[in-house]
Nucleic acid binder design. Structure first.
Lengths: 213, 213
DNA sequence: GTCATCATGTAAGCCGTTACATGATTGC
DNA sequence: GCAATCATGTAACGGCTTACATGATGAC
């Protein structure tokens, strides 16, 4: 999962480890770890595998892309102080390679039932072609439905040892699952619309009435 | 977290490892692992620490508590087939000890911000006195509010690199957090009501107007 | 010059998973 | 007897966390 997050971020812009960690924390929350002790070895592993490579960090601020709102806080800070950027000899800036992009697509298509992984997959799914994105969402939907079914099955035969709190927990779980399913359906609808749009260019109107559920 | 789940279940009834795993899967879902490779070492560790002990598994069905709906499925199966229970020499049935119960209460009061741990804590929180239960819920509420605040802070300054899917992800996260907060408030209200009831017996009406939020 | 921050890494250790090994009981 | 299920464990391995080690840069 860490590979997915790293490659996804590097696909957007070149970054060094320290900044990567900050953006990672912003993306998936500062909780759920992602400490230096796992980030740097992961970067080294990816570099060895050829998925990322250290790009020449030019020694002045031109090395840092200032277009748009990228590195917004840092840029704002510098502008406020009115001082040139440091030379930053010690930073090691990474960029994604073409094999790395392929690896990213593979990881996005990876059939994992892990919740956190899916979150990160959604965060970067725009790099997938619509059909694969749709497949990703459909797999997730199937997984959530599977859990819902499992839950319903388990609800029988345990009536004796369920106090108020455990009942409340079960109800809350069920509501959360429904909530997630509604969301997935939104994502699916949006992506299907994109697919239809694409088809309208290449081959008109034979997917519009496609199967639901 | 595995200790918490094991002690919580053993506090309800004596169980052997295999059955423990089944009930664990029912409680927190068959996903999120809890394989034998972690269960048995955990049981051994708890036994060594004196938190659980192997109880004499009598070699006939009398060893298995048939009162109420305990072991409901197994009992039903036997009744249906009409055959006596097996001797089960190989099973090692564990029971919780008094130190184990204390350890259970400690684990329930443990200040962890882990989501899964909290789920299990709720599942067994009935063993806590209402005041401690309330404190557990309040801590969770504070944690969720902290995450919400962090999220809101992070929402500024990232407008450029947010596509539709990442926006949708953020919205969904926010809705999920609100949803969880509503639930926590329900739990808090229920527990506070219990507290007030208790007070009405011991010491009337000086906690009713307690601080909110 | 010293402290905080930025920045990168290594090492020890925990925890949990997968896979393997073993063996009892029961249905057929 | 043989396969399926029940039942208990061990061993290898991997991944992640905490803590440690190092050093550059810039503020004061």
């Amino acid at each position: 999962m860490i590979d997915l997050a790293i490659l996804g971020l590097l696909d957007e812009q070149d970054l060094h480890g320290y900044e990567l960690k900050k953006q990672l924390a912003e993306l998936i929350g500062s909780r759920s770890g992602m400490s230096f002790g796992s980030l740097y070895p992961a970067l080294a592993r990816l570099e060895k595998a050829g998925a990322v490579k250290a790009v020449e960090a030019l020694t002045n601020e031109a090395a840092i892309p200032m277009t748009g709102a990228l590195s917004g806080e840092l840029a704002a800070f510098r502008a406020r102080i009115g001082r040139p950027a440091r030379s930053r000899r010690t930073r090691k800036v990474y960029g994604i390679t073409e094999p790395g992009r392929q690896r990213l697509r593979d990881l996005l298509n990876d059939e994992s039932t892990d919740d956190r992984t899916f979150t990160v997959q959604v965060a970067f799914c725009r790099v997938l072609p619509p059909a694969e994105r749709l497949a990703l969402f459909e797999r997730r939907k199937a997984e959530l439905n599977r859990r819902l079914a499992e839950r319903t099955r388990g609800a029988r035969g345990e009536s004796s040892r369920t106090d108020t709190y455990r009942l409340s927990l079960r109800e809350h779980d069920a509501r959360t699952l429904s909530h997630d399913l509604v969301w997935i359906d939104e994502l699916i609808d949006a992506t299907r619309a994109e697919l239809v749009d694409d088809d309208a260019v290449d081959a008109p109107s034979h997917l519009t009435g496609g199967s639901h559920q």
